Simulated assay, not measured.
Amino acid sequence: MATKAELESELEKLRKRNAALETQAEKESGSEEPPESAKSSDEIRKLLEDHGIDLSQVQSLGHDVVEEFGRLQKDYPITALLIAFSLGYIVGRAQG
């Protein structure tokens, strides 16, 4: 088992390494432009329009889904609970 002094020295080494990596990351990110994956909302809206997707239809569809799920929750609470659990499980499994 490691002693307290060994653990403290290891912690100090890790803190120094972390500080060095943070300064290196700041230097690298400060000199470069933002990555292409970071797009503004205007660029995303334009890309959606280029592919024939109307953003207002997507937003109205989202409102319809929320209203439908609210109605389902009132009429069939157990079913809504199972749907929410299943969706959370699927998203969780997909991410890791």
Rank of each mutant, 00 (worst) to 15 (best):
S9F: 05
S86R: 12
R71P: 00
A5T: 11
A25E: 06
T23N: 10
G52W: 04
R93M: 09
K74W: 00
Y89A: 08
V58A: 10
E33S: 11
L81H: 05
A19H: 08
K4Q: 15
E8I: 13
A94K: 07
L21I: 09
E36L: 10
G52K: 05
I78V: 12
A84V: 04
N18R: 13
S60W: 01
E32W: 01
L14E: 12
S9I: 03
E43A: 14
S41H: 07
L11K: 15
E67R: 11
K13M: 12
V66I: 15
G62V: 00
E28M: 12
E26W: 04
D42M: 09
V65W: 04
V91T: 08
G30K: 13
K39N: 03
H63C: 00
G88W: 03
A5P: 00
A25L: 14
I90S: 04
K4P: 02
R93G: 01
Q73I: 00
L55A: 14
E26H: 07
P34W: 04
F69Y: 09
I53M: 11
V65K: 09
V66W: 05
K46Y: 03
D75N: 03
A80E: 03
E12F: 09
G52Q: 05
K74S: 10
E49C: 02
Y89G: 00
R15K: 15
E33T: 08
H63G: 03
Q95G: 02
F69V: 07
A5R: 15
G96P: 01
A19T: 10
E67N: 11
G96Q: 08
A94V: 04
I78K: 14
S60T: 07
F69D: 02
Q59L: 11
R15Y: 06
K46H: 07
L72Y: 00
H63W: 02
A84K: 15
I44D: 04
Q24L: 12
L11W: 07
E49Q: 12
Q24T: 08
Y89W: 10
G70D: 11
K13T: 14
K16A: 14
K13N: 13
T23V: 07
K4D: 14
V65N: 05
S9K: 15
K74G: 04
K13A: 14
S37V: 08
D50A: 06
Q73V: 01
A94P: 00
L81K: 12
M1T: 04
L72K: 02
G96W: 03
T3C: 03
A2Q: 08
S29H: 06
S40D: 08
T3Y: 02
Y76S: 06
I53E: 09
S29I: 05
V58H: 04
E49I: 04
S60H: 09
G92F: 04
E6N: 05
A2K: 09
V66E: 15
